[in-house]
């Protein structure tokens, strides 16, 4: 539990920056190189590389080696973990709301 929460701390720190979130959104559509990523963001390639390092250290993306190219891509495990984190919250909420659905049905029938 503690290990997981520490990992999530790093993940959320990595996600706290809007440029890094935009980079992740771009990578969610498919892998891309530093050059590809620098274009839409009008930021220098070294700046993009620094953001990519933060994302990679947080385990959110990984580098694939293809000849001299180094395309980055989303690391599915990490994204799944993040999804689990959000879906747990959702699950607990849904338990309450499905009870509320039943209550509302009962109240509607009384009309």
């Amino acid at each position: 539990m503690v290990i997981l929460m520490t990992a999530l701390d790093t993940t959320f720190a990595a996600l706290s920056d809007p440029t890094r979130r935009a980079i992740l959104a771009r990578l969610a559509q498919g892998e891309a190189t530093v050059q590809d990523l620098a274009k839409p963001f009008s930021i220098s390639q070294p700046a993009i590389s620094r953001h990519l390092k933060v994302l990679e250290d947080a385990g959110l993306i990984e580098t694939r080696i293809q000849g001299t190219a180094r395309p980055r891509r989303i690391k599915q495990d990490a994204v799944n973990e993040l999804w689990d984190w959000l879906s747990q919250f959702r699950e607990v909420l849904e338990r309450n709301y499905s009870r509320l659905d039943n209550l509302l049905t009962t109240l509607n029938e009384k009309d």
């Binding site: 539990m1 997981l4 929460m5 701390d9 959320f12 984190w85 747990q88 919250f89 699950e91 607990v92």
Partner: peptide, 10 residues
């Protein structure tokens, strides 16, 4: 994060 996180400790 803390608020959302606590949901993990089912």
């Amino acid at each position: 994060k803390m608020m959302l996180d606590t949901g993990m400790a089912d």
